[in-house]
Amino acid sequence: MAAQAHGFGAMETPVQALTSGALALGVYPETLLPLLALGLWLGFCGGVRRSALAILAGLGAGVLLAPFAPEALAMLSLMCGTLVAAGVALAGPRLPTQSAQPVAALTITFAISSLLHGQGFDSLPVGFVAGVMGAALLAVVAPSALAGALLRGGAAWRPLSVRIAASWLTAILVLVIAFSLRPV
C-alpha cells in the first residue's frame, strides 16, 4: 500500500524551508515526543556528547530510510518513545550507560523516518531537511541538558523530578497511541 506522506508548510525560500522543517517537528507527536523521551534517557546516561555519533547516525538513517518507510512507522515510533519514557520513569539512575547509543540511534531513526516517510530524496529542499535535523537535535539536547543539570545536585528530588517528567511523557504517549488507534 502506498504510504501517505505528510504535508508541510511553505518552502519557497530557503528560510521558509528551514522554518517549515523546524516547525514540522512540533506538529507530529510521533516525532517530537520520542525525541524528548530520548533526551531524558541520555540525561541519565552521561549526556548527548557520549552518544553524538549514534545521534548523527540516527538522523542520517532516518532521512535515508524515509522514502521506503511505511505509514505504520509512526505507530512504531510512538511505541518506541513510550518504552524509552517508561524506562526512564521506572529505572531512572539504574539505566545502563551502554544502552544510550543503540537507544539513541533507533529512536531517532524511527522518529525522523516517520516524519519524512513517503518523501523522495528529491522532493524536499535541503533547507527543510536541515530544519528538521536541527529541531530534532534541539528536541534531544534540550531535555538532556535540563535533566543533566538537575541530576548534578545531590538532593533526592532532582532525579525524582526527571522521572516524574518521564512518567508524564509516557502517559501522554500512551494517550496519543490510543487516539491514533481509535476507530473513527
Binding site: A89, S167, T170, A171, I172, L173, I177, R182, P183
Partner: peptide, 19 residues
C-alpha cells in the same frame, strides 16, 4: 506512587478511548 499513577491511568485512558 506519583510516577506509577499517571502511566497506569493513561493505560486505563487508552482502554476508554478504544472503547
Amino acid at each position: 506512587l506519583p510516577i506509577v499513577f499517571p502511566m497506569v491511568m493513561a493505560f486505563g485512558g487508552a482502554l476508554g478511548i478504544l472503547g
